[in-house]
Simulated assay, not measured.
Amino acid sequence: MTASAAPLDTVRSVATPEGCELRLRVAGPVARARAFLIDALIRLLIFVCAVVVLRYFGALGQGLVILTYFVLGWFYNIAFEALNDGATPGKRLCKLAVLREDGTPAGWDAAFIRNTLRFVDALPVGYAFGLIAMGCNADNKRLGDISAGTVVVYRPDAGQSAVIDDYSEAEPPPFSLTPSERHALIEYRRRCATLTRERAEELAELAFPLTRGLSPPQGRQKLFRIANFLMGREASAARKTD
């Protein structure tokens, strides 16, 4: 008996007091890093503009530059996550949001805790501690998220279909696949209609031997074509047994 394929995506189910079930799709490190870089660029642009303007105000301007640096580094993430539905501008552009583990808005306390511990996640270099922590739990939580009881998820309004459900393009796999690998590709192809394009491309990067040398969009399309081939072959086999 072959081992069952590992799940292709991280979906967190949360039961609400009203008896409803929320399905939160947890964001991976690639999407979160993209949002972080966008926010870093926005903060840098604001700071540069502040320096250019405030340098004409002498000692007062120097003090305001220091204050601007502090506010951008410390208060930027906290304020946006607490007041803007859990999303900084970078997260909103990447269709991400910070929520509590029960699916409710993060609020000031959770936003403060997760961002205060960001400096620990950044140690010793390149957010090493944060990446290690994300790899050690199923919800991709860095240390700040674990302490604050928060999770970064794809926004509910981000659920655009990542694929057109036609099976016209297909190609055979470049090498022999195990039954579990074939099953995983077919499951990926079928589930991509419920994923965002960003998440579909992020998952495609996990199939590195099949997507070597391809950009994320090219890798996603190649996996679709291989899955189409496998599904077509499965359909043919099923017809022969009827």
Rank of each mutant, 00 (worst) to 15 (best):
A6S: 15
P7H: 13
P7N: 12
L8K: 10
L8H: 05
V11D: 15
R12L: 11
R12C: 10
S13T: 15
S13I: 15
A15T: 15
E18Y: 12
E18H: 15
E21D: 13
L24S: 11
R25H: 14
R25D: 11
R25E: 10
A35Y: 05
I38H: 02
I38V: 13
I38D: 05
L41W: 12
R43Q: 08
F47E: 00
V51E: 09
L54V: 01
L54Y: 07
Y56E: 05
F57M: 08
G58I: 01
L60E: 10
V65T: 02
V65L: 04
L67F: 12
L67H: 04
Y69C: 03
V71K: 02
L72Y: 00
L72V: 00
G73E: 01
G73D: 01
W74A: 00
Y76L: 00
Y76M: 00
N77D: 02
I78M: 01
A82D: 03
L83W: 11
L83D: 01
N84T: 04
P89A: 08
R92N: 03
L93C: 02
L96V: 04
V98M: 05
P105D: 06
A106E: 08
G107H: 01
G107E: 07
W108V: 06
N115W: 01
N115Q: 01
F119V: 08
D121A: 04
D121L: 02
D121T: 07
V125S: 04
Y127R: 10
I132T: 04
A133N: 09
A133V: 09
G135F: 12
G135N: 05
N137Y: 10
A138K: 15
D139Q: 09
K141F: 08
K141A: 03
L143S: 07
I146R: 10
A148P: 06
G149A: 12
V151P: 02
V153C: 06
V153D: 09
V153F: 06
V153W: 09
Y154I: 03
Y154P: 00
R155N: 03
Q160D: 07
S161E: 11
A162H: 04
V163R: 13
V163G: 06
I164K: 09
D166Y: 06
Y167K: 07
Y167A: 05
Y167P: 07
S168C: 08
A170R: 03
E171M: 02
P172I: 05
P174Q: 02
F175K: 00
L177D: 00
T178A: 08
P179R: 01
S180D: 08
R182S: 09
A184F: 04
I186V: 07
I186H: 02
E187M: 04
E187D: 07
R189Q: 10
R191S: 09
A193C: 10
A193T: 15
T194S: 14
L195V: 02
T196W: 07
R197Q: 10
A200C: 05
E205F: 07
F208D: 14
L210S: 06
L210I: 12
R212A: 13
L214N: 08
S215W: 14
Q218Y: 11
R220V: 02
I226H: 01
L230K: 03
L230D: 07
G232I: 05
R233P: 10
R233W: 14
E234W: 14
E234M: 12
A235D: 14
A235Y: 15
R239C: 09
K240H: 10
T241R: 12
D242I: 12
